[in-house]
Design a protein around this nucleic acid. Structure first.
Length: 187
DNA sequence: ACACGGATACTA
DNA sequence: AGTATCCGTGTC
């Protein structure tokens, strides 16, 4: 999914906090058994009803809110899961919300970053571009994106739809594939 | 290695 | 109503 790849390196500004996106995953509406659309009618309807850029926020494992962007058109409809940020602003507030210190532990995971940014179900279904204090700043320089297998799923594991900022120290889990096998893309 | 914990979408 | 499932984290 090209959107997931394009978001790597961009800065997500969320109120008084902000972070550079260092890890994303793509989930496709069709042909992807790991996507909610595969089993949930409600998620398929969500795609029909809402415009691209709508936030899809849901609770995972009864503990963590996970942040997804709805993407439409292009090669396929689907969602981009934001999995990790490199904190760039508001570290003190994020540390306070997380209840832990250390910049590397603030947003290095999809559940951690929603806690750090104070994202929960209240933002589910909201159009990202209509949220006044939320912004997406495009990267100013080219970055190297590494392609890897998605994390934490049991179905459609063969799809390499995880996108990492190369050599980032703020990833949720290290890349699984070794450099010779992994693909690198200058984007 | 394991517990924690709730929305969703099924079944009946 | 009851149950199975689930894109994780922190601590054991």
């Amino acid at each position: 999914m090209t959107c997931a790849q394009s978001l790597v390196g961009c800065e997500l500004v969320w109120g008084k906090t902000a972070g550079r996106i260092v890890e994303t995953e793509a989930y496709a509406e069709h042909g992807d058994q790991a996507s909610h659309t595969f089993l949930r009618r409600g998620t398929r309807e969500f795609i029909e009803i809402n415009p691209p850029g709508t936030l899809y926020v849901y609770l995972n494992y009864g503990v963590h809110w996970l942040l997804n962007f709805l993407v439409k058109g292009g090669s396929a409809n689907g969602f981009v899961l934001i999995r990790a940020l490199e904190p760039t602003d508001g570290c003190q507030l994020m540390t306070q919300r997380r209840g832990r210190s250390g910049d590397r532990n603030l947003c290095s995971g999809p559940g951690k970053l929603t806690q750090a940014l104070a994202i929960d179900s209240a933002f589910h279904g909201r159009d990202f571009f209509q949220i006044s204090d939320a912004r997406l700043l495009h990267r100013r320089r080219a970055v190297t994106v590494e392609i890897d297998r998605r994390v934490g799923i049991t179905k459609s594991v063969e799809l390499d739809w995880r996108f990492l900022l190369a050599n980032s120290a703020f990833l949720s889990v290290p890349k699984k594939k070794n450099p010779p096998q992994s693909q690198l893309r200058r984007v």
